[in-house]
Design a protein around this nucleic acid. Structure first.
Length: 151
DNA sequence: GCCAACGTTGGC
DNA sequence: GCCAACGTTGGC
């Protein structure tokens, strides 16, 4: 079972949005970066995903969700009223995908970015690298364990 | 609000 | 195919 991490602004959709309706899957849509999209396509039902809060007061890993629906064409790309509308994407050949994610648990405390940066075993994780903008990334099993050890 | 780092676009 | 210009991300 692969493991992942996704970035999100908690004001848009954070761990509290999952926790407030724990049985309700939330579509992870609006990803408009090819590398991130390719990772979405590799996600499989049952995979676990860290939720990372960015661009906010308390930056860091806040909780865990799981994949409950494999990648499918992101409907927002065809919706002219959506912020994520992509007029260049053709319905017969969708450019962007989404997955559905569901609540697993909140971490007992948020693990802040500076703590993650201090862990030598995470040096290769794109998240902690300066200037990295990838919003969906794989987390290896050893990295996952190192992170959980901090919670 | 600032600004460095990055991905994408488009002219050539 | 190169690369400058541009818009966006995201920590501070």
């Amino acid at each position: 079972m692969a493991k992942w991490l996704v970035k999100t602004e908690p004001s848009e959709c954070g761990i509290e949005d999952f926790a407030s309706a724990p049985e309700k899957p939330i579509p992870w849509d609006g990803v408009r970066n090819y590398q991130a999209r390719n990772f979405l396509r590799e996600m499989k039902e049952g995979d676990e995903v860290f939720i990372y809060h960015s661009s906010c007061k308390h930056i860091g890993i806040a909780g865990i969700v799981e994949v409950v629906k494999n990648a499918y064409a992101d409907p927002t790309q065809f919706d002219p009223t959506s912020d994520y509308h992509d007029p260049k994407s053709a319905p017969e050949k969708p450019r962007w995908d989404a997955v559905d994610l569901k609540f697993v648990r909140k971490l007992p405390r948020l693990i802040p970015l500076d703590e993650l940066r201090a862990l030598p075993d995470l040096e290769s994780l794109p998240l902690v690298r300066k200037g990295n903008r990838l919003s969906v990334m794989p987390v290896s099993d050893p990295e996952w364990q190192v992170i959980l050890r901090q919670d």
